[in-house]
């Protein structure tokens, strides 16, 4: 009995720790007073200002566009690459996979700095394109790592059976292999999308002056001091994620 209540209290404190900051932000997004600690009455002012804030709107636009582009491109390249890597010889596979691991294991700041060095060395102006290339680069490894296990689980004779029945290799791939590895591809695409949306460090080094995503905007705003518009922005983003997760959850429950 004692152990049970200790467990309950511990769990409660842990979740309080995890959610207190988020809930505080949400509450203060409706706070009339500009001060962080004092309550000055209910308002939607910061939400209104948020929608008229060119910088934030711009950052939001870039965040979404880059996330979609990098998710799509890295999923295509990564899936094709995974099939190729799967069929490589032992040694070649090992080398490619180890290089593939580098962006995953390396501190983000090293990846960011090295890409920045590359772009500047080859005189590619830092901006939208450099940031997109950087995002694709750190997303592909996750796609490859998500698809490869599915290929390994695949029955080796599946493609052969399809071709035995008269399918061309590309037909066999589309109709037999692709459906089998689809869960891995979807996982990879989702990971790429969320990693891109959430990224700060690599974007920070590769975005240049004109372009910035939400993370970079939050960073510069936070350093200049507290801006209640950020609270409004966080509330909206967190609610969006929550609704998205609830929908996904409901769909999986319905499918069962």
């Amino acid at each position: 009995m004692v152990i049970r209540s200790v467990k309950k209290i511990y769990t409660f404190l842990m979740f309080l720790f995890l959610y207190a900051p988020i809930i505080t932000l949400m509450i203060f997004s409706f706070n009339e007073s500009r001060s962080r600690g004092k309550w000055g009455g209910l308002t939607l002012r910061w939400y209104k200002e948020l929608f008229h804030d060119g910088v934030i709107k711009n950052a939001f636009y870039y965040t979404i566009v880059i996330a979609i582009f990098s998710a799509v491109i890295s999923t295509i390249i990564g899936t094709i690459a995974a099939v190729g890597i799967h069929n490589m010889s032992f040694l070649g596979k090992k080398v490619v996979l180890n290089i593939n691991y580098l962006p995953v294991l390396n501190p983000e700041i090293v990846t960011g700095v090295s890409l920045m060095t590359l772009f500047i060395f080859f005189k590619l102006e830092l901006g939208f394109l450099s940031m997109l290339l950087a995002h694709i680069t750190f997303c592909i490894p996750y796609v490859v790592l998500a698809v490869l296990p599915k290929l390994r689980q695949l029955n080796k004779h599946l493609a052969e059976a399809a071709m035995d029945l008269g399918a061309t290799p590309s037909y066999a791939f589309r109709k037999v292999i692709l459906p089998e590895i689809m869960p891995g591809i979807v996982t990879g695409a989702l990971m790429a999308f969320t990693l891109s949306i959430d990224d700060f460090v690599i974007s920070f080094f590769t975005a240049g002056r004109g372009v910035s995503n939400l993370s970079i905007t939050v960073y510069s705003m936070a350093r200049r001091g507290i801006n209640p518009r950020i609270n409004a922005l966080s509330t909206l983003m967190f609610s969006a994620i929550l609704i998205l997760l609830l929908i996904i959850n409901k769909r999986t429950v319905d499918q069962e």
Partner: peptide
């Protein structure tokens, strides 16, 4: 769930 929220926003929340 909190990990799905932007890393910078989470850190910023502690400043508040």
């Amino acid at each position: 769930l909190p990990m799905w929220m932007n890393f910078l926003l989470r850190t910023y929340a502690w400043m508040t």
